[in-house]
Amino acid sequence: MKYPLASCLFGVLLAVFMGPSAGAAEESPVSPDDLVYCTVCHGMQLRGNRNIEAPRLSEMDAWYIEQQLVAFKNGWRGTHPQDLIGMEMRPMAAALNDTQIKAAAKFAQASRAPVPAATVDGDADAGRTHYSTCAACHGVDASGNEALGAPPLAGLNDWYLVRQLENFRDGVRGSHPDDLYGAQMRASAALLPDDQAIRDVVAYITSLQTN
C-alpha cells in the first residue's frame, strides 16, 4: 500500500502549509460576490496564476490597482494589437463602474498571499546597477511612490515584470497618447539595453522582495 509512505510525507508538507505565509488565506477577506471572477484568473486571494498569465495582485496598493483598472477601461492597456495577454484582462475592467473599481482595489490590497517564488533566471548583481535609475521613481526598496504614479514592484510575479518591461520597450504598453504614467515608464524601460538587462533587473527586484 502507498498510504503509510504518503502519510509521513504529508505530515511534513502540512507543517510547511500551515507556516507563516500559508496562514494568509484566513487573514484574507472573503471575495466579494461580484469579484469572485477576479480570483478565477488571478487565483485565490489574488495570488497570481501563471497558467492564465494573470499576476499576483495581493497586498498591492489600492491606488495603483485603480490606476491600472482605469488604464484598461480607457483602452490604454489591452488594446495594442500585440497585447494579446492584456486583451484577456481588458473586458473585465471595462465592465466595472467607479464604485466597483474602488471595491476591487480595496479587495486586492486587503488580500494576503505568499510572496511568489522566483522563476526568472537573471543576475541580481548586474541588475542592481540597472536599478539605480528605477529607484528615482519606484524607490530604493521598490516600494513605489504614489505621488509619481510609480507602483511598488516588490511582490509582483517576476515573469509578469519581465513581460511588462518588454511591453513598455516595444510600445505595447505606454504608447497611448493619454497614458501619461505609461509614457514616463516607457521612456525608462528604453534605458534597459537588452533582454538580459530586463532579466537582471527583475532578478534584482525579486531579491528585494524576498529579503
Binding site: F17, T39, G43, Q45, R47, N49, R50, N51, I52
Partner: peptide
Amino acid sequence: VHFMEGIPNNFS
C-alpha cells in the same frame, strides 16, 4: 487543471 496553481494546496 490550469486553475490548481491559483488554488492553495499542499501538494508535493
